[in-house]
Write a protein that binds this DNA or RNA. Structure first.
Length: 813
RNA sequence: GCCGAAGUGGCGGAACUGGCAGACGCGCCGGACUCAAAAUCCGGUUCCCCUCGGGGAGUGGGGGUUCGAUUCCCCCCUUCGGCACCA
């Protein structure tokens, strides 16, 4: 009998697969198979693969292999997101070059992927830190620059004092650096931005077309974009010729404005402070605010603020209202100034109470008199407009649009939409990234590097330790260049790009491997739209939003034929340990590769996929806490080996019941894999293998079941399936190029079923009946049931519910 | 606070369109094999009661619809995830 020895089997087939080139996607125009692009989020090379990779790629690979078996021409590529800060930090710590650290890790991960038996098309491998790749990342930058979607401006930015670089808003978590956890501070810097806000509406609208995305990701994207409808209104600043605009979602409350507040960074503030002869106190506050981090919540949640000593005029009623500066107003949202309506906005209410300002009710709740003096909180629900001039008696919120309309007619404002989404800050003051391909010329300003001169290579001999400015700025040979326009001395931009730029387009590059005349060919991308994207939910906003934006921009440039990059998205759950995420500091990290060496890649995959639904978290401690204990998956594979070997050896007729179960299993597993229900698919395979064992032990044959079982195992445990298919069942070709087994619905149907006999909805008996038993027959059987009769007792059956052949319910009352 | 997802045995989890709750696996218990152990195989395993035929309860809690609810509706509780002065 064949013993299951993964340590012997797996490396052997790994070599054979490589020699046979089994997993290459075909670009042959004669190839008429339907195409399937199975994309996995590419890894960051921070060391060897971790358990999260094992989980994600086990699922992604199962999908790719399953589609291949179903007759698709599958593109299943792999690459590395290999620029980025952690490489630099790790390199500094180890005293080596980031390049060395990165590429060693890539090679290690590549070996591990091969050891895991991933069905990657290695000929399409990309690494974002390769000049052949980032050449096109730079091209993308220039394309966006051409389109007016990349621009540079001086603005307060989130600065991480530890990593010594700016961060995108998306990378600041509650005021702390996403990567290192240091408190973020504010710094005024000239930075490059991508104008993602131009696409806010389209990014929001098209989210509705992503029917195959997880609901929670859709919701997160919507919330992040954060669309608000309302109006902008212009207030005149008394004593000047200046106007100041505010955005409000509640123009219906305009008659309740009793004060006005600026963000401290608002450009008008210095002028107004001077005009109002503002106190030392005000100056001190403004100064302090401008030195605090953008995202300092404690600051923002206070209701402090100071009068500037000037007034603005409410355009709807001509009233003068006092002007303040306060930290609760953010420069980044809306216009950086708000109108204060304390009666109907909680923040304004608190501010008014704090500073003794008038509270004026202009939306009267139904059935109830509200008066300002007794209010304990703002009223922000529906009601009737009062003290509102021409709008008295109108119902809010229906009146909001009417007021906005009216403002436009009166020339006081107009309906407006504001988004929470900010432009994407893409420049970084660190070394290990793609240089921004811009040359600064005194004469000609920001001049794009000519496409023919790309890539702007990242020099290796750089002192890359962070120092508050870009390390590249210290590298004279890099910096000094000539202006492409006038040929005079000029300076290269010394910032590098956010690595999310690298990863915003890598899935296009896979379609045109090695292409040297462009980032990709349009026809390749058209041929290979992503069919399935697999990866972690931690990218629900950042990466996915950026990739969607870049795809839309490239669509507008005529370079790709679709507006959404990923039709289907599947998020695997996280692998945690003992209820907590794994981390070095907790000392609970489990390395997958030693387990793969010990128990086999197939066991690792099956353990992962069987543990829970793919999108749910797996607590490794619960499912495989003891590394010395033989995993259940390994045990089962051993039983499968025995059963298949016995089936191959034995002859004779296969019992009809086993044939039927086989067909039923094929039908079920096919459906399950289509819906990524790997855990359920595996359980069905277990049922089939258990039944095979029974049949074999009773002296029956099971060859047909064995063949089907092995094929269905192929996407989930590819090495074991291959060994069984070729070495045990004696097939000449790989199971991975075999044709997914079909099923016959008639055979998949049960021959007999269990009839449930209920009395008053309670199960009283179970009777085996032929699958074609009709209503009369099952009713007869139900009445014949001893148990049912006893349950009925001397009562009368008032109603009979018959669902032949599955159920009869006899109702006595 | 707002948005989203989810609550089923000791554990991970099954259950098609409302029709056998707990598939499958882990763990545990018992047995076989063994001098013994490991490995392997076989059997049992929701809880309570029982005269061993069976009976009762049971899918976070409370209501409702229905012959029948893990599944549909309403209210509540809890957990997880995201966002959070966004004007």
């Amino acid at each position: 009998m064949q013993r299951y020895e993964p340590a012997e089997i797996e490396p052997r087939w790994q070599r054979v697969w490589e020699e046979e080139g089994l997993y290459r996607a075909s670009d042959d125009p004669e190839d008429t198979r339907p195409r399937f692009y199975a994309l996995d989020m590419f890894p960051y090379p921070s060391g060897d693969l971790h358990l999260g990779h094992a989980e994600a790629f086990s699922g992604g690979d199962a999908v790719a292999r399953f589609r291949g078996l179903q007759g698709h021409n599958v593109l299943h590529p792999i690459g590395w997101d290999s620029f980025g800060l952690p490489a630099e930090n790790a390199a500094i710590k180890r005293g080596i070059h980031p390049k060395q650290w990165t590429y060693e890790n890539i090679e290690q991960q590549a070996r591990s992927f091969k050891r895991m038996g991933m069905s990657f098309d290695w000929t399409r491998r990309v690494q974002t830190s390769d000049p052949e790749y980032y050449r096109w990342t730079q091209w993308l930058f220039l394309k966006l620059f051409d389109m007016g979607l990349a621009y540079r401006k001086n603005a307060p930015a989130n600065w991480c004092p530890n990593d010594q670089t700016v961060l995108a808003n998306e990378q600041v978590i509650n005021g702390f650096c996403e990567r290192c956890g240091a408190a973020v501070v504010r710094k005024d810097l000239t930075q490059w931005f991508f104008k993602i806000t131009d696409y806010a509406q389209r990014l929001l609208d098209d989210v509705d077309t992503l029917e195959e995305w997880p609901e929670r990701v859709i919701t997160m994207q919507r919330n992040w974009i954060g669309r608000s409808e309302g109006a902008t209104v212009r207030f005149a600043v008394e004593g000047t010729d200046d106007d100041v605009e505010v955005f409000t979602t509640r123009p219906d409350t305009l008659w309740g404005v009793t004060f006005f507040v600026f963000a401290s960074e608002h450009p008008l503030v210095p002028k107004l402070a001077e005009l109002g002869g503002t106190s030392e106190e005000a100056r001190a506050l403004i100064h302090r605010l401008q030195a605090t981090p953008l995202t300092n919540r404690e600051q923002a949640e206070s209701r402090e603020g100071v009068r500037l000593g000037v007034h603005v005029v409410n355009p709807v009623n001509g009233e003068r209202v006092p002007v303040f500066v306060a930290p609760y107003v953010l420069m980044e949202y809306g216009t950086g100034a708000v109108m204060g309506v304390p009666a109907h906005d909680q923040r304004d209410f608190e501010f008014a109470r704090e500073h003794g300002l008038e509270i004026r009710v202009v939306i009267q709740p139904p059935e109830e008199e509200r008066d300002a003096a007794s209010m304990t909180e703002a009223y922000d629900h529906e009601g009737v407009m009062v003290h509102s001039g021409p709008f008295d008696g109108q119902r809010s919120p229906e009146s909001i649009a009417k007021v906005a309309q009216w403002l436009e007619e009166q020339g006081l404002g107009r309906p407006a939409v504001t988004f929470r989404l900010r432009d994407w800050l893409i420049s970084r003051q660190r070394y290990w990234g793609a240089p921004i391909p811009i040359i600064h010329c005194d004469e000609h300003g920001e001049v794009p590097v000519p496409e023919a001169d790309l890539p702007v290579e990242l020099p290796e001999d750089v002192d890359f330790r962070p120092g508050g400015e870009s390390p590249l700025a210290r590298h004279d040979r890099f910096v000094k260049t000539t202006c492409p326009t006038c040929g005079r001395d000029a300076r290269r931009d010394t910032d590098t790009m956010d690595t999310f730029v690298d990863s915003s387009w890598y899935f296009f590059r896979y379609c045109s491997p090695g292409y040297e005349d462009g980032a990709f060919r349009r026809e390749d991308v058209e041929r290979w739209p992503v069919s399935q994207y697999t990866g972690g939910v931690e990218h629900a906003i950042l990466h996915l939003l950026y990739a969607r934006f870049v795809t839309k921009a490239l669509y507008d440039a005529g370079m790709v034929p679709f507006v959404e990059p990923f039709a289907r998205l599947m998020n695997q759950g996280q692998v945690i340990f003992g209820g907590a995420s794994m981390s070095k500091s907790k000392g609970n990290i489990v390395e997958p590769m030693p387990l793969v060496e010990r128990w086999g890649a197939d066991s690792m995959r099956l353990t992962m996929l069987f543990a829970s639904p793919f999108e749910d978290d797996i607590d490794w401690k619960l499912i495989a806490g003891d590394p010395d204990r033989r995993p259940g998956a390994h045990q089962w594979l051993g039983r499968v080996f025995a059963a298949v070997a016995d089936s191959a050896a034995g002859g004779g007729d296969e019992p009809m019941e086993l044939v039927r179960l086989t067909h039923r299993t094929i039908r079920g597993v096919t459906e399950d894999l289509e819906r990524f229900r790997f855990n359920v698919a595996i359980s069905k395979l277990m049922v089939l293998s258990n039944e095979m064992r029974q049949v074999l032990d009773a002296g029956g044959a099971a060859r047909g079941a064995a063949e089907a079982l092995v094929q269905m195992l192929a996407p989930l445990a590819p090495f074991a399936a291959e060994e069984l298919w070729r070495a045990v069942l004696g097939h000449g070709e790989s199971v991975h190029v075999s044709r997914w087994p079909g099923y016959d619905d008639a055979l998949a149907a049960q021959e007999t079923l269990t009839l449930i006999v209920q009395v008053d909805g309670k199960v009283r008996d179970k009777v085996e009946v032929p699958a074609d038993a009709d209503d009369a027959r099952v009713l007869e059987l139900a009445h014949a049931s001893e148990n049912a009769r006893r349950a009925i007792g001397d009562r009368e059956v008032a109603k009979e519910i018959v669902r032949a052949p599955k159920l009869v319910n006899l109702v006595t009352r």
